[in-house]
């Protein structure tokens, strides 16, 4: 298992963002669904080693991120795209991705080729020398994905990766996700249930800091049978689970 989480909790003052989450994930694409404020981003940030948990146990790629040496090993094998990616507008696309490749301690001889491949995979090969300040929101999102995958991570964490992408780009991105999921554990946090249906083998639904459903997209769709709210089976399942939990 690349992700093993037991009783993970994160509090911000009196607010409990993540409340005793248990989760296990191996290679493949794992979808994390939930309404705003459900705790998805906090959970992802803890998995990205950007924020320590208040309590609970977290093991990533068989290592303990609480220990400095093991955290370093995890970070070398990690790709992370946050919900709001900051960037220096004077960088070109290639420079931005190269900067992260160098920071992630990739072998120097492999950096240029890895940057080229990552930029091509997000279909920005023609824009490699364009300054970030000249790109659209969707293109910037793809640059963010490129920096996350440049080191061929074993654990890839993507927070709302399809926000700002047009339908054609989203279809291409789902194909990329499926490809990445063959070798790595890819955790995708999203509001868009269609992304989950198209790309994820497993899905967890979070509400108020807890995981209230864990199964396959087909299981989630089955939960929505006979439920009135939602246009698509997955939406009906999503809505049915949340309604059941809240009632």
């Amino acid at each position: 298992m690349n992700v093993e989480i037991t009783g993970l909790t994160r509090r911000f003052g009196r607010t409990t963002a993540v409340a005793g989450v248990d989760l296990r994930a191996g290679p493949g694409v794992f979808g994390l669904l939930g309404p705003n404020g459900a705790g998805k981003t906090s959970l992802l940030r803890m998995m990205a080693t950007a924020m320590p948990p208040t309590s609970g146990r977290l093991r990533l790629l068989g290592r303990d991120p609480g220990r400095y040496g093991q955290r370093r090993q995890i970070r070398r094998r990690l790709g992370y795209l946050p919900q709001n990616l900051g960037y220096y507008p004077g960088f070109t696309v290639a420079e931005f991705v190269e900067y992260f490749a160098l920071l992630k301690e990739m072998p120097a001889a492999r950096v240029q080729a890895a940057v080229r491949v990552a930029v091509e995979r997000v279909e920005l090969g023609g824009k490699a020398k364009a300054r970030l300040r000249t790109l659209s929101g969707g293109m910037l999102r793809r640059v963010g994905i490129a920096q996350a995958i440049v080191n061929e991570p074993e654990l890839l964490l993507l927070d709302e990766p399809t926000a700002g992408l047009d339908p054609e780009q989203r279809v291409a991105f789902r194909a990329l996700l499926r490809d990445l999921g063959r070798r790595a554990t890819v955790v995708v946090s999203t509001h868009l249930v269609e992304d989950v249906g198209a790309a994820c083998a497993q899905v967890a639904l979070m509400d108020r800091g807890k995981i209230v459903f864990h199964g396959t997209p087909a299981d989630l769709a089955a939960r929505g049978e006979g439920h009135g709210i939602g246009d698509a089976p997955l939406e009906r399942g999503y809505s049915a689970v949340l309604t059941g939990v809240r009632s």
């Binding site: 970070r75 992370y80 795209l81 990616l85 900051g86 960037y87 920071l103 992630k104 996350a148």
Partner: peptide, 15 residues
């Protein structure tokens, strides 16, 4: 001031 935030902070030991 870092323009890159979390992805930079979790990207290895050189920072």
């Amino acid at each position: 001031a870092s323009p890159h935030g979390d992805p930079e902070r979790v990207a290895g030991r050189w920072l």
